[in-house]
Design a protein around this nucleic acid. Structure first.
Length: 376
RNA sequence: GGGCAGUUACCAAAGUGGCCAACUGGGGCUGACUGUAACUCAGCUGUCUUUCGACUUCGGAGGUUCGAAUCCUUCACUGCCCA
């Protein structure tokens, strides 16, 4: 994997670049739709490519390992062959499940023991076997196994957690470097910065991660309970240290505003369940603001879903119709909302890229941040 | 014409003397959701009030009782059965 910076914004740390993988190029800044169990929920890949214009999607190690399981994935010839997505795939390591399934897991130095949310069975994830699993899945970008520290953790916990993530990183990298890809194309490994909301820990972690000199670096443990301003502050602290010539991936973020603020601070890659999950729950993100499609106010509004939207669903369907579909619990509602939201997210990062190229990113971003946060 | 059963909030349906402004579903309204255990979750849903609380309700009218959605009388309506 290679990364090339093509343009930089004169007034901020924003940059536009290109990531090259064996499954194709990715123009940054980029948003990566989340496809946890080998499917971006409610979306066909045809729509994902042609209408949403996604360039890379996520998969999840924990989920795919439990179901369909490694035997099936290996039998298929990897995830790309299995689900038919022939562009790049990034897999999360299960580090987020250490956080989100904290009721069902135990942490120790060796790794994390999970109780499957499907059948309750016990499974041990280690930095090494998680590399192995991601090799078998066949992800283009493999993520380190980390502890995603809650944003509310105290200093001592955050420090110990970060130090263990660093030790896990050493082990994971050692295993990664001593093994080969299984399907003939190359894979790369991103380490993850932790350190919670504590600047000195974040700096320490960023130093450690930067010193590994990998193809790209991730910032984890944000948007997990800390105030948004803290998140922005931590991004700034970390990005001062992470190498400029490597892509920076802010994991799990976020709202359209979060993404614009991240881009301004030098982040290149984002992923978040928000456009799909919130879409399924009736929320639409648009360039003009946020709409709760279940609200009564849309009942007789026959105007197009989003007159400034770029996807066909924005023109074909009206607000009143989509509201009707949500109220009636029709599956089509979730499809339309997901397509719209993802198309909007990809449009947003694409526009950011254009404005970085033109050189007026900061001005554009300032106006857009206000617009997208409005409630319609 | 006779017999039986029933009538509770938007709908369905509990409650059969005080713990009832009334269980529970559904529907409706509003909110939440950030590396997906999420087509999920939470709140509200008689009126007035920010809260405390006050007021008016359980087909209609009248009665018994300290007290009634709950007991009695009567009227109206609905369903089933018999003529």
């Amino acid at each position: 994997m290679t990364f090339e910076i093509q343009h930089t914004d004169p007034k901020s740390n924003a940059r536009a670049g290109k990531i090259t993988t064996d499954h194709g190029d990715i123009e940054t800044p980029i948003f990566m739709p989340v496809g946890t169990v080998a499917s971006v929920k409610a979306i066909h890949f045809h729509e994902l490519k042609e209408d949403i214009k996604a360039q890379i999607i996520l998969g999840n190690t924990y989920h795919l390992y439990l179901r369909p399981g490694l035997q099936t994935l290996e039998g298929a010839g990897g995830l790309h062959k299995f689900n038919g997505w022939d562009k790049p795939i990034l897999t999360d390591s299960g580090g987020f499940q250490v956080f989100s399934l904290s009721e069902n897991r135990k942490l120790k130095e060796e790794g994390a023991t999970f109780r499957s949310h499907i059948d309750g069975s016990k499974h041990l994830f280690t930095p090494e076997n998680v590399v192995e699993t991601q090799r078998t899945i066949g992800a283009d970008i493999i993520m380190a196994f980390d502890e995603c520290t809650p944003g509310t953790a105290d200093y001592n916990y955050a420090k110990k957690s970060m130090e263990m993530t660093h030790r896990w990183l050493d082990r994971g990298l050692k295993h990664f470097d001593s093994t080969e890809p299984k399907y003939g194309y190359s894979q790369t490994y991103f380490p993850i910065v932790q350190g919670c909301v504590y600047p000195d820990l974040r700096r320490q972690s960023a130093d450690f991660i930067a010193s590994q000199n990998r193809d790209g670096n991730a910032i984890g443990g944000l948007a997990v309970g800390e105030p948004t301003e803290k998140m922005y502050e931590m991004i700034e602290v970390v990005n001062e240290i992470l190498p400029k010539d490597k892509p920076r991936y802010l994991m799990g973020v976020g709202t359209p505003q979060n993404i614009l603020e991240g881009i301004e601070r030098g982040v290149d890659m984002f992923d978040c369940v928000m456009p799909t999950r919130n879409g399924r729950n009736g929320m639409l993100f648009t360039s003009q603001g946020i709409m709760n499609m279940k609200n009564e106010r849309w009942k007789n509004d026959f105007s197009p879903l989003d007159e400034y939207g770029t996807s066909y669903v924005d023109r074909v369907y009206s607000k009143a119709y989509l509201r009707h579909l949500f109220i009636s619990k029709e599956l089509l509602a979730m499809q339309i909302a997901s397509i719209h939201n993802l198309a909007f997210y990809l449009w947003l990062v694409g526009e950011a890229r254009k404005h970085i190229q033109i050189g007026d990113f900061s001005v554009w971003k300032k106006g857009m941040v206000e617009q997208v946060a409005r409630r319609l």
